[in-house]
Write a protein that binds this DNA or RNA. Structure first.
Lengths: 244, 244
DNA sequence: AAAATAGTGTCTGTCAGACACTATTGC
DNA sequence: GCAATAGTGTCTGACAGACACTATTTT
């Protein structure tokens, strides 16, 4: 009979043909009144010169865990360290990558457009924001990234009406009007102002910050910031006008 | 300059130290008026003799995709081929498995207790249903399976009030009273009958089946069955009495 | 008739949705 | 004052939640 220490001694990890393990990122922002996603043009095989979601192979020597791998990819492309990050799903099969059976963990990130400096990183020819139309982007993508992007967009859109997630698309401080505008862009329709404000404030997902924002020939607006609970909070009912 | 075919030709998949890739299953049923989860006692190292969620290493030679791997594990333990299956999350880090950096994709399955014959499968000393109390089970589990189970239970509980998922815990045909009872068990509280029936029927997630069920000295109940849309449907508002 | 569960009808408080109104700034 | 946006108040219809009622079976 063998104990666990002895078992591990003789265990050969390379005896198993493991799948390729990767992380892919759908990085969203709101820019020019549109939801946009960060894509880069692949500079290496496979799918060289095609547009793709940022991502890549998990490095078990560098990444302490899955989320660290995701943050590493994100930081490399945007320079942003700690945006809102959420795991969407994992896909895995023998056909999605010509290199063999591969498994990809998909994350989405939300970040404010200001302060982001896109850098190519190695292996990427270009990186740029592309507007999201309906559930995707109007260009073919490498691998199964079209499907991955659709899944990420649907997850995001599905949560908009029930959570305070869109607040992460704005900077530290923002006005309720700005927040409402982001909701409207994500939902693709107008929201009734009074109901929106009541529900956001009642939910306690934002707190007022000192100071007001003055932009033009009009009444200045109170500034707010996210509260800690903001991301996880589920509104008891729908937030925006109209169901779903 | 190399084209893609030439690239793949010289590409050596074993040059990368990939994580161990596994699938774990939280298999739920309702038995004896309680939510129960299927556990098995490990017959091999590591964590020999500890209770664990069914699962194991993905076999890229056998499993065409991730879900196939999950169904293979499920079928091996229960003999059930096609229950409700949903991906919950993926965890990965260097410390959760003594064999090395490992990555586990967690699924949960819902199935009716009738007709399930538990079999050990190889590598398992015993398999049995264990009641779920609060967010877990009252025994230590192997690896990080306590956390995995908690995640699965929370996902299930979180969706109960907004979806028709609990219908998958019953057989082909069931009465509305039986369905209501399952909801009550999962939510841990009574639901008002009239409201429950109105919302289930209005949502159109079940359809009446021919025949009625007669059990005792009382009025027989109409039988219903799930409709195709049942699993994905989101109720516009909460289904059960009381929020969340 | 009694017991037991199936199934329906009605009332009420709450809240989403609509809309109109007041407030505060620059010009 | 006028334009423009911030922010509030009020009415109404719909529905969740509570509760009481009717219906159908066996014993």
């Amino acid at each position: 009979m063998m104990d666990e220490a002895a078992f591990l001694e003789q265990y050969d990890i390379t005896a198993y043909r493991a799948p390729i393990a990767t992380v892919d990122m759908a990085i969203f922002t709101v820019l020019e009144e549109q939801l946009q996603v960060l894509l880069y043009r692949r500079g290496e095989h496979p799918h060289k010169d095609r547009w793709a979601l940022p991502g890549g192979i998990i490095d078990v020597g560098v990444d302490v865990d899955l989320e660290a791998a995701a943050r590493r990819k994100l930081h490399g492309k945007t320079g942003v360290a700690s945006p809102y990050l959420e795991q969407v799903a994992t896909v895995g099969n023998g056909g999605r990558d010509p290199r063999g059976w591969s498994l990809s963990v998909l994350y989405f990130a939300l970040l404010p457009a200001e302060g982001v400096t896109l850098s190519h990183g190695w292996g990427a020819a270009q990186a740029q924001w592309r507007p999201v139309t309906e559930d995707g982007v109007d260009m073919p993508l490498a691998f199964d990234h079209t499907e991955l992007l659709t899944a990420a967009v649907q997850r995001l859109r599905g949560k908009v009406a029930y959570t305070a997630l869109p607040a992460h698309l704005l900077g530290e401080e923002f006005t309720l009007s700005e927040l409402q505008r982001v909701y409207e862009i994500l939902l693709g329709r107008k929201i009734e102002k009074s109901a929106f404000r009541k529900r956001i404030l009642d939910a306690g997902v934002v707190e007022s910050a000192a100071g007001r924002k003055r932009t033009g020939a009009n009444r200045p607006a109170q500034l707010y910031r996210r509260r800690q609970s903001a991301s996880s909070h589920l509104f008891p009912r729908n937030l925006a006008t109209g169901d779903l």
